[in-house]
């Protein structure tokens, strides 16, 4: 789901299990290519997935020091636990989720 500066707290920070957050930018070609993988994973895996457009949601982007996009981050009980910056394959995302679900 798409979250914004307004909804980030409620959807990610106050969520009490694992969330995968995809920070992306509309200008960023790798983000565009990951978009379709994220859309597919949202249907296929049993983990909450949120997308934050960093250009439209600068407050969240600043708060979490998103210095490059795409950034994929795992939040557990509202705390960031792991992040990966730059493009990743679907397999690498699945590995991240596996670690998070342990």
């Amino acid at each position: 789901m798409e979250v914004t500066d307004k909804t980030f707290k409620q959807e990610v920070e106050n969520y009490d299990w694992v969330v995968l957050v995809d920070f992306w930018g509309s200008w960023c070609p790798p983000c565009k290519t990951i978009e379709e993988v994220i859309a597919r994973l949202e249907k296929e895996v049993d983990v909450k997935i949120c997308s934050v457009n960093v250009n439209r949601n600068p407050i969240t982007a600043k708060k979490y020091d998103i210095y490059g996009v795409p950034t994929l981050a795992i939040f557990r009980n509202g705390k960031e636990e792991e992040r990966s910056v730059g493009s990743v394959t679907e397999g690498q995302i699945l590995e991240m989720l596996e670690r998070a679900n342990k």
Partner: peptide, 22 residues
């Protein structure tokens, strides 16, 4: 023009996504 997300570069047993690169 741009690699899809599941394209990867493999070299000496290591692997990187090429997704989004020209």
């Amino acid at each position: 023009g741009i690699f899809p997300s599941d394209a990867a570069l493999e070299w000496k047993g290591r692997k990187w996504s090429l997704g989004g690169e020209l």
